[in-house]
Design a protein around this nucleic acid. Structure first.
Length: 478
RNA sequence: UCCUUAGUAGCUCAGUUGGUUAGAGCAUCUGACUGUUAAUCAGAGGGUCACUGGUUCGAGUCCAGUCUGAGGAGCCA
């Protein structure tokens, strides 16, 4: 029954008249008891199906309601009306699934993103979310394509981990022990020897440490998987469950790392522009309609597509942390005391500082390197100045930190010295330290937050709208 | 977690100083119309005013607490 189906995306591309075309999809609107706007998710464009007056029973027409699933066979013809080039003159219409219009929550009108978030199971059926998730798919595909073309090996790092020394935030405990009455040891603490893995385990906050194990055998690897942070973060940029891409490369230094990250970001944006122009154009239009409601000074200087093309066509700005602090100290914002937080060498830059650099000063993505070692992780390579480490963060306009990475400390004595200073027990990471004992090499890597990348490319502003089923504090519906 | 702010019909919102029976547009239903683009026109139905408690003759409106959303901050990707 279904093998004759043609996707609407392919039907729209046909420019000759054809008999016996079969499409299936969900009704978006039914106008004038005659015109069905049909969508099957393959494209943002609806196919206009024409049910000629008198050809169909009233009982059938009554069942063509918003979001009903239908099968239509008919003749593809040039459209008589404006607004579309072709339309499908229906010969037969079958209802595959009814949709009760009294109950169905989506209407053929504009809905708020907040409302759609409450019905995330149905929001894919809107233009906006259709476009967002088709673009998300393309970006995910482009990630694999980019790394595969460059000879990187896709390594699946574990989701359950016993290491709590990664230092990347609060973790979700994984346990099969009874919550109400867990076994206790002699000191009265929970006895994880009794637990499923015989030790305390959590959901991963990063695949990096395992990634380094792969890089020091395969040369270049990447991971792309879910990541979990149990932080009580309530912002438009944070999720408790998100997807992260983490390449690790042997024989790479900080500059190689930056070059790769910049090439990578440009590659996947270019891929989306090439493959999702229709969806990007829709979101571009949506965004500019939204911005018309804002006062002039709050509007973006560039449209979404202009911004994406600008990023692809221009070099990212590269500055050191020390230079960044100097720029801030010499800024009029600092001199006029516009910053809420003070600026001096050694601070962990606040959002307002990063936004000033990216959105006001350079107006393009900025790579900041060589941060003070005190504010960065133990595994970052120590520079010769004794004060900084070979770290790099990429800051994107409107998003903030989109990439965090570094050259890794490959020298065992320096690495263990930093671990001791930061109270990280060596015995928990013996396997990690082994890479520095057996053929250690200079290597580097970074992590890119996939949803933040999708935010940037789609122009959406809340991270909960670019992941299908967002997990955030007090929210795990669907 | 902190600050700010909001919660009234399916959706978006109005609701005056505390005062009779709670309002609009859209959606839905019924009818008309029939080449429409969120169709149009006429009519109808639709409410635990987030929840709990309090003040008052009387609370959508005032007070306290709770829950949830949004904007900003922190943490970070």
């Amino acid at each position: 029954m279904f093998n004759k189906r043609i996707k609407i995306k392919d039907v729209i591309g046909l420019d000759q008249e054809l008999n016996d075309i079969t499409v299936m999809g969900w009704v978006r609107t039914f106008r004038n008891n005659q015109f069905i706007a049909l969508n099957d998710g393959s494209t943002n464009t609806n196919l206009q199906v024409v049910a000629e007056l008198g050809l169909f029973e009233d009982t059938l027409l009554k069942r063509i309601t918003t979001s009903a699933a239908i099968k239509v066979t008919g003749k593809l013809v040039k459209s008589l009306g404006k607004g579309q080039n072709i339309e499908l003159k229906a010969v037969s219409i079958d209802i595959l699934g009814d949709s009760d219009p009294e109950q169905y929550p989506l209407q053929p009108k504009k809905h708020s993103l907040e409302f759609l978030r409450e019905i995330a199971h149905l929001r894919f059926r809107t233009n906006t979310f259709g476009s967002v998730f088709r673009i998300r798919h393309s970006l995910a595909f482009a990630v694999h394509k980019f790394f595969h073309e460059r000879g990187f090996l896709y390594l699946h790092t574990p989701i359950i981990t016993a290491s709590d020394a990664e230092g990347a935030g609060e973790m979700f405990r994984v346990s099969t022990l009874p919550l109400d009455n867990p076994p206790k040891d002699a000191n009265g603490n929970i006895d994880f020897k009794e637990d499923f893995f015989g030790k305390a385990t959590n959901l991963t906050v990063s695949g990096q440490l395992e990634g380094e194990l792969g890089a020091t055998a395969f040369g270049e690897i990447y991971t792309f998987g879910p990541t979990f942070r149990a932080e009580n973060s309530n912002t438009a940029r944070h999720l408790a469950e998100f997807w992260m891409i983490e390449p690790e490369m042997a024989f790479h230094d900080l500059e190689d790392n930056m070059n790769l990250a910049e090439d990578f970001i440009k590659y996947i944006i270019r891929f989306a522009i090439e493959h999702n122009l229709e969806d990007l154009t829709f979101l571009d239009q949506r965004l500019s309609d939204e911005e018309k409601l804002l006062p002039t000074d709050k509007r973006s200087e560039m449209s979404l597509l202009e911004k994406l093309n600008f990023v692809v066509d221009n070099d990212f700005e590269r500055i050191t942390y020390t230079e960044a602090i100097d720029i801030l100290l010499n800024s009029s914002a600092y001199k006029k005391k516009k910053f809420q937080y003070d600026v001096k060498w050694g601070i962990d830059m606040q959002s307002e500082h990063e936004r000033y650099l990216v959105e006001k000063h350079f107006k393009k993505p900025v790579i900041v390197t060589n941060y003070p070692k005190e504010i960065k992780a133990f595994y970052m390579r120590q520079n010769d100045d004794g004060k900084t480490v070979a770290a790099m963060d990429i800051l994107a306009p409107g998003i903030g930190e989109i990439v965090g990475g570094s050259q890794r400390e490959e020298r065992l004595p320096l690495l263990t010295q930093r671990m001791a200073e930061m109270n990280i027990p060596e015995e928990e990471l013996w396997w990690y330290l082994d890479t520095r004992k057996y053929g250690t090499v200079p290597h580097a890597g970074f992590g890119l937050g996939f949803e933040r990348m999708v935010l940037f490319v789609t122009g959406m502003t809340n991270i909960r709208d670019v992941i299908a089923f967002p997990r955030t504090p007090k929210s795990a519906e669907f």
